[in-house]
Simulated scan of single mutants.
Amino acid sequence: MITGKKILVTGASGSVGRPIATALAADNQVWGLARYTDPDAKDRLETAGVRTIAADLAALSADDMRGLLPEVDHVLHFAIDMFDEPDFERTMRHNIEPLGLLLSRYRDVDSFLHCSSTVVYEAHPEPRAEDDPLGDFMRPVNPTYSLSKIASEAAVRSVCRLLGVPTTIARLNVPYSVDSGFPMMNLTSILAGEPIAVHPDFPDVFAPIHVYDMIRTLPALLGAASTPAAIVNWGGDEQVGLSEWCTYLGELSGREVTFLQTQQAVKGMCPDVGRLRELVGGPVCSISWRDGMRAMVEASAAASRTAVDAP
């Protein structure tokens, strides 16, 4: 585990950054940077011992970053500006340009982890390894997302080499926890009686990874940081279909699950996690997808009971 370190987590109020910042704060000095449009998110992090920094990376100059951001040993970059409209200029300003400035600010860190995504790969029915072709995977659903992730990786790789910053680019697949992630979105739809969109002509297979196992694998990912940047798929050991886990969520919650076949649905994207297993020295996951998603359903049901019982 990581202990006694100074760590900056960007995107600390997000569904991935929040639990990771909270867990690391138990044994490290952790700063959580986010816009904090939800004050409750800021309060929860501070209660857990995270030192919060309310700022928008896209609005910070290089001088701002030097003055505002603390000296740390490690940077975990999860921040991303998500929006639906196909605004490529905004994508470059908000998600690409700040990366170069952030890496320049932290040119002396022990390691810089940039959280990318497996949506950088070209659509393919077989698991994708780190050196497989890249492509515009998400265009039917979000026209800017895949291209922005590829551009982000290009920026990170260039500045990493230019400044000699030990870097890991982790291509994340489907993270989830008891209250967040793609499976949680599916559960919310199932409970609301809404259909689950699936692609009619493409496998729906992914490799979900519980946030707890993401935290377990962090030391290995940070330890792999290098110049040029190390590139590692970040997903679970088990390959499972969206329709399979949604059917399971329906069984656990006692709800009928309906599927809507549409070309606008996300295609399956399953990473090959062999490189990550080598870094970890064994299996990636300690929590199977069935156990993790069962806990998610139980937590959702408990939250619903609490809401009903509240005065």
Rank of each mutant, 00 (worst) to 15 (best):
V109T: 11
L187T: 08
G181K: 01
G17I: 08
D27H: 12
W245F: 15
S253M: 11
A59N: 08
R277V: 05
V120Q: 00
V284Y: 07
A299D: 11
N142R: 14
Y212G: 05
G250P: 00
M185K: 14
Y248G: 04
R157F: 00
V119I: 10
S152K: 02
A155G: 03
L134H: 15
H74T: 02
T10V: 02
D87E: 10
T262L: 14
L249H: 02
R105E: 08
V273I: 13
L187P: 15
T52K: 05
R93K: 14
A123N: 06
T91K: 02
V284Q: 09
V257I: 11
R275L: 12
P140A: 12
E122L: 10
P219F: 01
S189F: 01
K267R: 15
D87C: 08
E194D: 08
L249T: 04
A303H: 03
A26M: 06
V50S: 08
H77T: 03
R35I: 02
A123R: 05
C115E: 01
H199N: 13
P228M: 06
V308D: 09
Y36A: 09
K42C: 09
A310E: 14
S243H: 11
V211H: 08
A155T: 11
T258L: 09
D108W: 13
S226M: 09
G268M: 05
Y106A: 05
D204Y: 12
A54L: 04
S13V: 01
T52W: 07
D213A: 09
R255S: 13
L101I: 09
E126I: 04
C270F: 02
A62F: 10
V284M: 09
W289Y: 15
S177M: 03
A299C: 03
P133N: 14
H94A: 11
E278S: 07
V9L: 05
S243P: 01
L99M: 14
G235T: 05
T3F: 04
I96H: 02
G100C: 13
G181H: 04
G281Q: 07
T47A: 15
E244M: 10
R105Y: 14
L60M: 15
R44P: 01
V198T: 13
R105Q: 13
D27I: 03
K6F: 02
H114D: 00
T188N: 12
D272G: 04
A295G: 06
A62H: 04
P143R: 09
E85W: 04
V174M: 12
E238N: 03
V308Q: 14
V273W: 01
A41E: 06
E256D: 15
K267L: 10
L147I: 08
V205R: 10
L45P: 07
W31Q: 00
R128H: 05
P175L: 07
G135V: 00
L76E: 00
A55Q: 06
